[in-house]
Design a protein around this nucleic acid. Structure first.
Lengths: 209, 209
DNA sequence: TTCTGTGAATTTATTCACAGCA
DNA sequence: TGCTGTGAATAAATTCACAGAA
């Protein structure tokens, strides 16, 4: 399968699901896993699993399955997790602070290099070894600290404005936690983590019971 | 369009997006909005917007557009946000505590009635007026407090176990914040909020720049 | 005219089903 | 035999394109 082939976004999302599943079943000790087994624990069709993996190479062996350790390493490589990424938190309010302390980030391949806020009472503080900078200094710090990912945890009302500054500072990716819809130019990567939206989908389906 | 028609999940997700967009543009003052305008700010095709809304009724007027206030009310009703939902947090660690304090929940239609943990140092505490109960008491409290939504913020390693207890306590919906893949029976609604997974998708696309 | 509501066409994603390798 | 890798079939979601109401 050629390296130029276009990969569906849904496939990329499932690759991280497979990583989760691996860390959950790894103890089980088998050093290979079949697409059928991986599919069952993931709640996905087995042909889908094979197709997802086949986009990136021939990792499996017919009659045997996939070597777990090797496959895990491959997926991490595909997702770009074989190196560290510099991230910064925007908004040092409650959510931002909780995210600064969240052990999950460090545990994966993310290095939290800074936080930004515009509240003078917060600026220059440090939390979990992460310094809080003035948002007004963003352009300089983004360059000096080589920030690659912006984690946006500001109130919805100012989210678009802060996003604009992030774009202007040439940070190429934003993970948005604010319950707001952001418009960013094509060159900027954007993903949303919207609790409220997920809850709203839950209540829609709950209603129909 | 008949009420028996099956609604795509993607449509339900977009309905909450439209609500976000409304609260962002409401100040602009116009009392109607066209599918084209709504599509533009939402980053969606205008036929998609019309189709999404048409699943639930004929809310628009040809040549005019959709009445904003009315449409907003309709969407809230469709999503089940015209009444309150009792939710409880599972896991009173850092993430759980941050979620307990998160103003967003109350602001929408969610009422946080309890938290659960199994750490004796945390049990019986209260945070933001939310009492922390012993996880062992879940079955009784779930019934007494009429918990309808479980917000899971425990470590990944115990997430499946706590999810099993939630299912056993007959709570019909789970919003999972743990970076773990959960298996739940068909009668239980499950949605995942996985920061790490979103970051991993970002790095995949960042790599290719 | 403008803009909705919606069938038809298209694109994208998932699942089937099987040839071929270990 | 057991399982991958992958074309072909199917299903689902999106977009086009236009008839018809205001």
């Amino acid at each position: 399968m050629g390296p130029k082939m276009k990969i569906p976004v849904t496939t990329v999302n499932r690759l991280s699901l497979y990583l989760r599943v691996f860390s959950q079943i790894e103890k089980a000790g088998n050093d290979t896993i079949s697409s059928k087994e991986l599919a069952e624990v993931s709640g996905i069709n087995s042909a889908q699993v094979r197709k997802d993996l086949a986009y990136f190479g021939q990792f499996g062996r017919r009659g045997v399955g996939y070597p777990v350790a090797e496959l895990k390493k491959q997926i991490r490589g595909i997702l770009g997790l074989d190196r560290d990424w510099n991230a910064a938190i925007f908004g040092a309010g409650r959510l931002g602070q909780a995210l600064m302390m969240y052990p999950g980030f460090g545990a994966y391949s993310f290095h939290m290099v800074a936080a930004f806020d515009s509240d003078p009472d917060k600026i220059s503080w440090e939390l979990e070894g992460i310094r809080i900078y003035d948002l007004a200094d963003l352009k300089r710090q983004a360059k000096d600290l080589k920030i690659e990912i912006a984690i946006l945890a500001v109130p919805a009302a100012v989210a678009q404005d802060v996003a604009n500054r992030i774009v202007a500072a040439k940070i190429p990716a934003i993970l948005n936690f604010a319950p707001a819809h952001l418009n960013v130019p094509a060159g900027t990567m954007l993903r949303n983590v919207d609790f409220a939206s997920e809850l709203e989908a839950l209540t829609y389906f709950l209603q129909k019971t």
